[in-house]
Amino acid sequence: MKTQVGIIGAGPSGLILSQLLHLQGIESVVLERKTLDYVLTRIRAGVLEQGCVDLLHEAEVHQRMDKEGFPHDGFEIAFRGATHRVDLKGLTGGTGVMVYGQTEITRDLIEARKAAGGTIIEEAEVTGVEGAETDNPVIHYKKDGRDYTLTCDFVAGCDGYHGASRKSIPANLLKTFEKVYPFGWLGIMSETRPASDELIYTRHERGFALCSMRHEKLSRHYIQCSLDDKVEDWSDDRFWDELKRRLPENVADTLETGPSIEKSIAPLRSFVCETMRHGRLFLAGDAAHIVPPTGAKGLNLAASDIYFLSRGLIDFYKNGSMAGLDAYAGKALRRVWMAERFSWWMTSLLHNFPETGGFGSRMQDAELDYLFGSQAAMTSLAENYVGLPYE
């Protein structure tokens, strides 16, 4: 097969890129290792920056989000048994966030690509990218036990941390950075009323907790746990009991509990591959960077990558200019590192770090006391949470 842009991965970043290119008359083929039904079972984040919301509008997949999503003007931080509200709109001059699940975004994008006759090849396992430094790179993949090739002008690697895209870049050219945190998040999804109208982040002596939601009858809750913990060690009752211990009493007393419909443990880490471009191969999303979920930046960073990459590709096909593509990595990385910094700061502020001891714990307490008493500090938090400008 031949196409203009070969896209590896049918997650949100790959599908948004394919949709944006289609609207500009640019052909693409999306290769996905799993089935699309499997892709839609992945439980991921749901807090969208305004920039991500705007990009979904540009991609013309915003109708259901506008109808069913939940605009949030703020969130709460629980500390020493009390909650402190971060007024996002008030502190940023009118900008909030949108709560709409990543699974629903993916569903909307798949339906849009199918309606437009877009090509998504399921169960296509990419084995490598050849000729990235030429004008016609080739993606090699396997499907149904047979070998295939997809020749294209450009390759977008949107296939996640474990995908083949980054592995296709020569190891001596890769420049990576990583920080692994000494804990994970145990999360459950339940068909219960959310704990609050807004997200609640909790710093507690027993560990971090987060009360989130997908809609008025679907809640997502997390607690900090040991990396040695296993999902089967945590019954629903044990999880709810532990979550209540970490929440302020007034929240715990009204918390609606129920059977989990999904339960998992996610380790926390930060990762950046600064080699986001190799010839005509471009990395985007989790293929290039991972952030701890504390700052709600994973999907939003993928969206900003696609913002820059789509504009570079559109400029090439409309005007024959490589300027946007040449600038892609620099623009994307500037925003990546700022989001990494914010996610690291939020994680460091709200979690228990056994190795820091009493001094480190007192520093976290002092930081929170300062935050709640400083308009400037709260504004900085709000500006980063709602998302820094793309340009």
Rank of each mutant, 00 (worst) to 15 (best):
A171N: 01
R64I: 12
D236T: 07
K114V: 13
R214E: 10
D135M: 06
P137D: 01
R44I: 11
A10C: 13
K175S: 13
D326Y: 08
S219N: 02
Q50K: 13
T275E: 01
K114A: 10
D66Y: 09
H204F: 14
L283K: 05
I314M: 09
K217Y: 13
D228E: 15
I43R: 01
W185L: 15
Q375H: 00
S270H: 05
Q375R: 12
K34A: 03
A382P: 05
A287Y: 04
T254E: 03
K318R: 14
V155H: 03
G90R: 11
S190G: 15
T275K: 00
R44V: 12
A303F: 10
G118P: 03
I120C: 04
D286G: 01
R80D: 13
V386H: 00
A252G: 12
L186W: 09
A266C: 10
T127M: 06
G46H: 02
D54M: 14
E178A: 15
V86A: 02
T176W: 04
W240P: 10
D66F: 00
C52S: 02
G320P: 05
F342W: 02
G360N: 10
A284V: 05
I77W: 09
Q4D: 13
H215M: 12
A156L: 10
D66A: 15
F75L: 10
A376L: 09
M322Y: 06
A382F: 08
C225K: 06
H278A: 03
A124Q: 08
Q364K: 14
L388A: 12
A209N: 13
S212I: 00
G184Y: 11
P12M: 12
G312M: 01
Y201C: 12
L109H: 01
G187M: 07
A302S: 07
K89Q: 14
A164R: 02
T41C: 06
Q63R: 11
D73K: 12
T356D: 12
A284R: 00
T3S: 06
F183T: 15
L55H: 01
E122G: 08
M1P: 15
